[in-house]
Amino acid sequence: MADENNSSGSNGKNGKVGVIERVKDDIQALKTDIPSKAKEQLEGLKDPTKTQVYTSIFRHKHDDTPRNRALGVLSNVFLHLHPAKINRDAVRYSYTWGMGGITFYLFIILTYTGVLLMFYYHPTKVQAFRDVLYLEHDVPFGKILRNMHRWAAHLMVIAVWLHMFRVFLTGSYKKPREFNWNIGVLLLVFTLLLSFTGYLLPDDQLGFWAVTVGTNMARATPLLGHEGPFGHQLGMTPYNDVRFGLLGGSIVDANALLRSYIWHCIGIPIVASVLMIVHFWRVRKDGGISGPAQVMLEAEADKPRRGPKAAGE
């Protein structure tokens, strides 16, 4: 600015007068500019959906039109797993029981409460049990946090079973959804393993003996366990068999605690999340939710099918 002033106002006195006049002029202009700008601003606030901030977040208009309803789902990363439209009867609770979605919701709750619990927990023999006592008695809302984590875990096991039950009863594993049923079976196994690895973490009698009973079975693994059929012949001992690998020792101790902690908090959740991504994606790719489909008659059973869409609608 200084340079500019020097170049335009060449002579000293003239320059000073010029600056003062310009300032006056600016103030004069402000008196009209501010009210008009402010009015403009207020006008803009009346329709926030027109603001740049809004349009940068939501890539569609706000009006209630079919197009915007579809875009609301399709242009949202969290919702776009859904199609824009679904079978009108598929929204009936009695068909799906909502169990798949509830399972996923419980997984989210478990991740959330689990992360919070991790702030207070050390997976060591000295501290684990004390940390749970600390959570129970001193941490604000610690008790309800732990309770929610445990009951959500139990509920998730039940929800997974009921989801599988429903999928079986509606024949939803049939062509073209065979592969996704298999992913589902793996997810069921990982749900049980997640719950099982979490059982040891409070390091109390209940978890300790449950995990002892559970992992003792691994001793009897055929070929790979030291008490299993042909294990002895293959040189298996309590110090090199599959149970040793699971526990990181020959008894349930500090290493077992650390191992189950890592499987519980990191290993299995990652694998399960990857499988969940595949599971949800395949639901869409295999033609969306399986029904409620039109009933098929005995006479039509062996007629050639028309691809995935035929089953869905």
């Binding site: 749970v132 732990r146 309770n147 929610m148 059982y199 109390d204 978890g207 300790f208 003996w209 449950a210």
Partner: peptide
């Protein structure tokens, strides 16, 4: 449901683990 359940019923916590004291019955989850 989860909130009500968690407020009314506490998650179990037994004595600290003790390899020398077997629970009877020792049940899996």
């Amino acid at each position: 449901i989860l909130m009500v359940w968690s407020i009314t019923l506490n998650a179990p916590l037994e004595e600290p683990s003790n390899p020398n004291l077997t629970m009877n019955p020792a049940k899996a989850p």
